[in-house]
Simulated scan of single mutants.
Amino acid sequence: MARFTVVQEVQAPAAEVWAALVDWPRHGRWAPMTTVRTVTDRADGVGAGFTARTGIGPLAFDDPMTVVVWEPPHGDRLGRCEVTKSGRVVHGRAWFSVTPLPGPRCRVVWFEDVTVVPHGLTRFAGPLLSLAGRIGFAATLRALARDVERSPAAPDQAGSA
């Protein structure tokens, strides 16, 4: 398995960062060569589904995901979202948490535990895939932080949890 964790502090309230993270199509702003589309009627909550398409032309692949844990942050309590990945190329799970910190800031933790097809690739190149994932998601979370820190909070995002 390829397993990694990335941590990023964001200078914005946890509710605002959560709202950005669960706006699935918005991930395409931060993740290079990736577009995300919702594939269920509801985009939020357990059972919501979305597909990330990553790559260029014939080298692109779909990464379909279904939300299995949905716990938005509330007050000082952290929020957590977990998805299962059920694609032909990537299987496994991923989750992120958003922890409120003092002042208008929070900490995002992103975790992935995946297998890549062909399975032998993950078995032999697992450490390399984990390193690549950690580097790629670190850049993605830095882009998220820049995006959210520049964006003024919408009234419904700032007050929701």
Rank of each mutant, 00 (worst) to 15 (best):
A125P: 00
G133T: 07
V98P: 01
T115S: 07
R107K: 11
E112I: 07
A145T: 08
F124R: 03
A94D: 11
A94Y: 02
R105Y: 02
L101H: 03
R134Y: 04
P127G: 05
P127I: 02
G136Q: 14
W110R: 14
V117N: 02
A145I: 11
L141K: 09
G92T: 13
P102Y: 01
A145Q: 07
H119Q: 08
A94W: 02
D147S: 13
R105C: 04
V108N: 10
P104Y: 00
G136L: 12
P118L: 03
R123A: 08
R146M: 14
S97V: 03
A125L: 15
R150N: 06
V117P: 00
P100H: 06
G126C: 01
R105A: 06
L144T: 12
S97I: 01
V148R: 12
V117G: 01
S130Y: 01
R150F: 09
P127Q: 08
G133W: 05
V114E: 05
F96G: 08
T99R: 09
L129W: 05
V148P: 05
G103H: 06
I135Y: 03
C106E: 05
F124W: 00
E112S: 13
W110L: 13
L141P: 13
S151D: 12
V148K: 12
A94K: 09
W95L: 13
L101F: 01
R93A: 09
A153T: 14
V90H: 07
W110C: 12
V109E: 15
L141R: 09
A139H: 08
V108A: 14
F96K: 00
V148M: 06
R146T: 12
L101Y: 00
H119R: 14
H91E: 10
E149G: 08
D147A: 14
A138Q: 07
L128F: 07
G133D: 04
P104V: 00
P102N: 03
D147H: 07
V109Y: 15
T140N: 00
G103E: 08
L141Y: 13
S151L: 11
V117H: 10
W95Q: 06
